[in-house]
Amino acid sequence: MMRRFATYAVLVAGLFPLLLPFYWMAVTSLKAKRDVFTATPQWLPLHPAWDNYPLAWSAEPFGRFFFNSIVVTTLIVASQLVLASLAAFALARFEFRGRRAIFWLVVAALIVPVQITFVANFMTLARFGLLNSYLALVAPYAASAFGTFLLRQAFAAVPRQLEDAARLDGCSGLAFLWHVLLPLSRPTLIAFALVAVVAHWNDYFWPLIVTNNNAVRTLPIGLGMFVGQEVTTDWNLLMAASIFVSAPMLLLFFLMQRYFVRARLHTGIRG
C-alpha cells in the first residue's frame, strides 16, 4: 500500500516538469499580446485569444509548408516501405551469393547519419541542379537501412513450411511477399511506418540544407524561420504555431500509442 502510494507520488511529481512546458505552451498560445509579459504569470488565459491561431498561420505561408510536409513525408514513407519490403524479402527468403555481405552493408549504413554526409550530398544535388526540389528532400531517404533491417527480421521469422504451403497453393515470389509476408508482418510495418512518419515530419536538418525557397520548404523550416523572426516579441503567436506544427504528430501518437510502444519494443530508433 505504502509502496504503491510512493510510486504514484514519484511519477506524478515527475509529471510536473514534463507537462508544465506543454501547459505553458497552450496557455501562452491563447493569450492576448498584453497578457504575455506580466509581473506574475497568468496561469489561465482569462480572455482566450483564439485569433492567435489564424494570425500565426498567416504570419508565414504555413499552408504551403503544411502541404509540402505532407507531400514529402508521404513520398519518403511510401518509398521506404516499398524498397525496404523488397530488399528485406531478398535478404530474408533467398539464398544467393553475397547475401551476408549485403546484409552487413545495409546494417553499416545505420551508423552513417545524414549529419555526417550532408556536405557531400549537398554538393551532389547542387551539381545536378536539384536543390530546392521535392526530389532533393526525398531522394536521400528513399530507402531505409533501418526499415530493411527491421522487415528482414520480421520476414525471416516466418516459418519455411508456410512458404512451402504457399508455393503448393500457387503463391510464390512477389505474390508470397504480398499475400503472406506483408500481412504477417503488419505490426512491424505499422510500427516502422509510424516511426518514419514522425522522423520525417519533424526533420529539420536536411530540409534546412537543401531548401531556401518557400515553394518547397517544410513545416519545421517554416517554424524555424518564425522562431528567428519572432524572438523577444510575439511568443503567443510562436506558441500557437508550435502547437499546430506539433499537433499532427501528437495526435498520431495518442491514436496509435499501441503501435508506437511496440515500435520501441521491437526496434528502438529515435523518432
Binding site: P220, G224, L238, S242
Partner: peptide, 23 residues
C-alpha cells in the same frame, strides 16, 4: 503515464526549441 512521458519524443525539435526559448 507511460504515454505522457513519451509525448516529448514525438514533438518536432523546432517546436521544442521554440518552447524552450520561451520557458
Amino acid at each position: 503515464l507511460r504515454a505522457l512521458y513519451y509525448a516529448p519524443v514525438v514533438m518536432p525539435t523546432v517546436a521544442v526549441a521554440a518552447l524552450a526559448l520561451w520557458m
